[in-house]
Simulated assay, not measured.
Amino acid sequence: MDPRGGNHEQQARYFAGLAVPDGAALTEAQEELARAVLGVVLLVGLPPYSLEAAADGEETGVGLAPVPGRPHALRVLWRQDATATLYLPADLAHAQQAAMHQALRTILSAHQFWVEDGPVGEAPVVLGLTRPGAT
Results as ranks from 00 to 15, higher is better:
residue 81 D to E: 11
residue 130 T to M: 13
residue 112 Q to M: 12
residue 53 A to C: 06
residue 35 R to P: 05
residue 93 A to T: 14
residue 19 A to R: 03
residue 90 A to E: 13
residue 132 P to C: 02
residue 2 D to K: 07
residue 19 A to M: 00
residue 92 L to K: 13
residue 67 V to P: 01
residue 52 E to S: 07
residue 101 H to Y: 00
residue 86 L to Y: 11
residue 16 A to M: 04
residue 6 G to K: 14
residue 91 D to H: 11
residue 59 E to M: 06
residue 128 G to N: 04
residue 16 A to N: 04
residue 1 M to V: 15
residue 9 E to C: 05
residue 134 A to Y: 12
residue 29 A to L: 04
residue 112 Q to P: 01
residue 62 V to K: 08
residue 37 V to I: 15
residue 94 H to F: 09
residue 62 V to H: 04
residue 16 A to Y: 03
residue 12 A to T: 07
residue 48 P to R: 07
residue 56 D to Q: 13
residue 19 A to Y: 01
residue 36 A to N: 03
residue 115 V to Y: 09
residue 132 P to G: 02
residue 124 P to R: 12
residue 86 L to E: 14
residue 126 V to G: 04
residue 76 V to Y: 09
residue 110 A to S: 11
residue 102 Q to H: 12
residue 107 I to R: 06
residue 25 A to L: 11
residue 9 E to F: 13
residue 123 A to M: 06
residue 79 R to W: 08
residue 15 F to V: 09
residue 26 L to F: 03
residue 61 G to N: 05
residue 105 R to I: 04
residue 77 L to I: 15
residue 63 G to E: 00
residue 20 V to D: 02
residue 81 D to T: 02
residue 55 A to K: 14
residue 14 Y to D: 08
residue 52 E to I: 15
residue 97 Q to G: 10
residue 4 R to N: 14
residue 84 A to D: 10
residue 129 L to Y: 09
residue 34 A to H: 03
residue 75 R to V: 00
residue 6 G to S: 06
residue 124 P to L: 14
residue 92 L to G: 00
residue 106 T to R: 13
residue 51 L to C: 02
residue 126 V to T: 08
residue 7 N to I: 12
residue 99 A to D: 09
residue 78 W to N: 00
residue 31 E to V: 13
residue 96 Q to G: 12
residue 2 D to V: 01
residue 95 A to V: 00
residue 75 R to T: 05
residue 60 T to G: 02
residue 52 E to T: 15
residue 89 P to S: 06
residue 123 A to P: 11
residue 65 A to G: 10
residue 63 G to K: 01
residue 44 V to T: 12
residue 90 A to C: 00
residue 57 G to P: 05
residue 72 H to D: 13
residue 132 P to D: 07
residue 69 G to A: 05
residue 130 T to S: 14
residue 49 Y to M: 05
